[in-house]
Structures are given as C-alpha cells and as structure tokens.
Design a protein around this nucleic acid. Sequence first.
DNA 1: GTCTATAATTTGATAGAC
DNA 2: GTCTATCAAATTATAGAC
Lengths: 180, 180
Amino acid sequence: MKQDKEHQILQAAEEMVRQGGYNSFSFRNIASAVGIKSSSVHYHFATKEALGVAVTKFYTDKFLDALGNPQELLEKGIDPVGKYVEAFRAELEDNKGMCMCGMLGAEAASLPENVVKEIRTFFKRNQNWLQEAYTSKGFKDKEASAKALQAMALLEGAMIISNTLSDLKIFDISTQALLD
Amino acid sequence: MKQDKEHQILQAAEEMVRQGGYNSFSFRNIASAVGIKSSSVHYHFATKEALGVAVTKFYTDKFLDALGNPQELLEKGIDPVGKYVEAFRAELEDNKGMCMCGMLGAEAASLPENVVKEIRTFFKRNQNWLQEAYTSKGFKDKEASAKALQAMALLEGAMIISNTLSDLKIFDISTQALLD
DNA sequence: GTCTATAATTTGATAGAC
DNA sequence: GTCTATCAAATTATAGAC
C-alpha cells in the first residue's frame, strides 16, 4: 500500500531529522530503515526538498492534532499550558531527540525556501494555539501573544540543553515556571 | 603564519556551523573561504572531528571572554544578565545565525563524542557564569542555578524562533522577562 | 604550508525492466 | 511500486612534490 509506505518513510525521516538535522539523513538511510531501495523512496518523494516539505507538514499536523483544543481542555479541568509542556517533554523521552521544527529552525539559513516556509507554519500555528490557551486563562490578547512566544522559546531551548546534557531534569527545571 | 590561517579556518567553520550545522560545511567550503585548498585545511586539522572540537573550543572561549566577569560588571553598574542577553542578541544580528553551541547541541545525538564533550563544556561554563551573575544579584545558590538554566534555555530557544521567522523583535519579546 | 593528484565512499537523482 | 544499474558530483582523507 502506497499510503502505508509513505507513512513509514515520513516516520523514518522525522526520526533522523530529530537526531541530526536535515543534512544527517540520506535517501539510502531512509530506504534501509523501511526495507526498500533508495530509488523507491524517490518514487514517493521526487526530491529531498519535497521530502523535507512533506515531513515538516507531517510533523506539524501530528503535533497539533495530539494537543487538541485549548478551550476544551480547560473545560475538562486540564491546564492547556501544562499539556503543551508535557507534549514537548514526551518528545525528549526515549532519546527521540529534539523537536523536529526546533532542529530545522536552527538550520533554516541553509535549507530550501519551501522547507523554511513549513517550519514557519509550525511556529505560527503553535503560537496561535498557545495564545488561545493564555487568553482562555484570562490574559488579554497582546499579553497572551507575548506569553505564547516566551513559552515556545523556553521549551525549544530547554530541549536543546536537556538533549545536549542528556538529562531530563534540566528540561523540568528550565520549564518549571510555565506550570505555576 | 600558521596561527593566522588556523584562525581564519576556525572563523569560517564557525560561520558555516551557525548557518547550517555540523553537516552543512565541507573541507572544500572552508578551503575556498580562506583561499587555500582542502588538503591544506587537513594540514591544520587532520579530521573533521578535530576541526569540530577545535571550533567549539574556539567559540566557547571567545564567547565567555567577551562577557567578562559578572561581579566586576555589577560593580561598574552594569547588569550582568542584561549584558548576557545582549551577547546573544548580537549573535543574531547581521544574519550571523544561531548560537553555535545551540546549533550543535540540537544535533548532539549524531555528532562525534569528542565534539559533544565540548558542547557540554560550553553550557556548563555558561551556566556557571549566569549562576554567579544571579548570586551577585542576591539569589541563593540553588535558586541562582535554576535561574541560570532557565535564562540559557530561553535565550537559545528565542534564537531559534527569531532565526526561523527572520524577525529580531521575536527575540526581544521572548527575552524581555530577563531584563526586569 | 601549500600544492596536485587521487583514492574510497556517499550523495541526490534518473532510466528502464518487471 | 519496487527493483537493478548507473551517473555526476561531492565528501573525508592521504601520498608525495615543491
């Protein structure tokens, strides 16, 4: 099934990007990870840029879908910001590596423009989500927008340092203030 | 002069890593940037790993030397944390790219262990510097240590997002809280 | 210290059979 | 959809002349 193989390819690509970035994986790496040949990967994604665009969209949708809706969370008695922090923390566990768009965002200056566009979409959609979360907690629009940016920045940076020092406690200490 | 060429090589390598990471530059890139051949780059740094270790040390020393001593800054009436924020902000300007160790830290899972060791040293020395800054401002050791981690995380993440969206204002909004 | 030349491998990508 | 075969280019690295 085509759908299935493409899904496997995207998952393999996501994993590799999260460990080492855009230039750390090859079509042959992906191919052997999903049990086909590199030419077959090209059948599904003609160029590396196309695969880069696809995997970034794939990751963005998956990440936001898993979060759900901030207001609905609040109605269920769940703090949406806490849920957001937990979503990032889960990425770090089991050595899955960085937030994929944090990694790609760092490398943005050297990536194809179409890939950069998708990374920007990730951050804009995440900022919107967090802004909604903060307004639903009672903050005014402008303050909620700033708090959304600050939370994203803190979480991306906490992942970098926790990832580098291989210590999940670093992540918890760094992001503690978001949970008050 | 050997010293001079090595310095040029390290500067070129730093710039390229900050734009695209460890796998985005080659010995030929470096060579043409400094006006020699790739085999001559190998004369100065035998392997890419050796160059990676050297450029990380180079960057760490340069970054911390430029900061000076936190207590002395305070005695001169300069807020050391403000100076630290400004040091990161300056890296972002003129499209120089990411903090080099933020970039490499994200890629840590795929880098040679000797390079990772140096990235860790960067973060540990920076945490010490910031901890000293916060204790000199009156915080107790444990709280100062946590605040140091939080500040580093916020700054690294703010760089990623500001870099991705090509908007320095993002950095300023994200890091505003550090300047209060 | 820098060069030319080259080795061995990997890379993104394509052509064409099945 | 997947394969084999192949290409042109790029990669890290080395040998040896100057």
